[in-house]
Amino acid sequence: MIERTAPSLNLRKTLLCGQCFRWREIAPDVFSGTVGNRHLTLTQQDLPRLRQDPFWCIYFDLNTDYETLRKQLSALHPNLNKAAQHGCGIHILRQEPWETLCSFIISQNNNIPRIQGIIDRLCGETEACSPAAFQNGPAVHPFPQPETLAALSETDLAPLRCGFRARYILDAARKVADGNVNLEALRTAPLAEARAVLMQITGVGPKVADCTLLYGLHRMDAFPVDVWMKRAMGQWFPGVDPVSFGSAAGLAQQYIFDWVRSGASEEEIPG
Rank of each mutant, 00 (worst) to 15 (best):
K82F: 04
K82R: 15
A83P: 02
A83L: 10
A83F: 09
A83D: 07
A84K: 02
A84Q: 06
A84N: 09
A84C: 14
Q85R: 15
Q85F: 13
H86G: 07
G87D: 08
G87A: 14
C88G: 13
G89E: 07
G89K: 05
I90G: 07
I90D: 09
I92K: 08
L93C: 12
L93P: 14
L93R: 14
L93F: 15
L93H: 12
Q95A: 04
Q95H: 09
Q95E: 11
E96W: 11
E96Q: 15
P97I: 00
P97L: 10
P97F: 09
W98T: 03
W98A: 08
W98D: 07
W98M: 14
W98E: 06
E99F: 02
E99L: 06
T100S: 08
L101F: 09
C102Y: 06
C102S: 15
C102I: 10
C102L: 15
C102P: 06
C102R: 04
S103M: 05
I105K: 00
I105N: 01
I105V: 03
I106Y: 10
I106H: 10
S107P: 11
Q108I: 06
Q108M: 07
N109T: 01
N109P: 11
N110P: 03
N110W: 07
N111T: 13
N111H: 13
N111V: 04
I112W: 14
I112L: 15
P113R: 03
P113T: 05
P113W: 04
R114N: 13
I115G: 04
Q116G: 03
Q116L: 08
G117V: 03
I118D: 00
I118G: 01
I118W: 01
I119M: 05
I119C: 01
I119V: 11
D120R: 06
D120Q: 01
R121E: 02
R121C: 01
L122Q: 10
L122V: 05
L122H: 02
L122R: 05
C123I: 06
C123H: 02
G124L: 02
G124H: 04
E125Y: 11
E125V: 03
T126G: 14
T126V: 13
T126K: 12
E127Q: 10
E127S: 10
E127V: 07
A128N: 08
A128G: 05
A128F: 11
A128V: 08
C129D: 03
C129W: 04
C129I: 02
S130Y: 05
S130D: 06
P131G: 02
P131F: 01
A132C: 07
F134Y: 07
F134C: 10
Q135E: 14
Q135R: 11
Q135F: 06
N136G: 10
N136I: 08
G137K: 06
P138E: 11
P138G: 02
P138D: 05
A139W: 13
V140E: 02
H141A: 05
H141Q: 11
P142A: 09
F143G: 00
F143R: 01
F143I: 02
P144M: 09
Q145D: 15
Q145R: 15
Q145T: 15
P146E: 00
P146V: 00
T148M: 11
T148V: 12
L149G: 00
L149A: 00
L149F: 01
A150S: 11
A150G: 03
A150C: 02
A151K: 14
L152Y: 03
L152T: 01
S153A: 00
E154A: 11
E154N: 14
E154G: 12
T155N: 15
D156W: 08
D156T: 11
D156I: 03
D156C: 11
